[in-house]
């Protein structure tokens, strides 16, 4: 079963890359952007068919490795 997780920086953490992307978008004429925050996306195929168990497993991975909870939040976005 495939489970996806999105890792994003917490609100108060400076994201210089997001800032530069925002400025570049602005320069390209996309003037309606308020803010850009860059994050990471993981697609994990786990050997587990129960959606709840698969999700819990990936959540555990997020807590222990994929995200650093001092600066990042994680969100399990889909299971299929």
């Amino acid at each position: 079963m495939k489970v996806s997780a999105v890792i994003t920086l917490k609100k108060d953490v400076l994201d210089p890359q997001g800032k530069v992307i925002h400025e570049t978008l602005d320069g390209m004429g996309f003037n309606s952007v308020n803010e850009v925050r860059q994050g990471k996306y993981f697609e994990i195929d786990v050997k587990e068919n129960d959606p709840k168990k698969a999700k819990d497993l990936v959540e555990d991975m997020c807590k222990k490795l994929l995200a650093n909870l001092v600066i990042e939040n994680y969100k399990i976005i889909e299971t299929q």
């Binding site: 953490v13 890359q17 650093n68 600066i71």
Partner: peptide, 16 residues
């Protein structure tokens, strides 16, 4: 910092 032996994290340098 990643192993939790000292507190905090090290982010990308401010001016990239």
């Amino acid at each position: 910092v990643e192993s939790g032996l000292v507190p905090g994290v090290l982010l990308r340098n401010k001016y990239l």
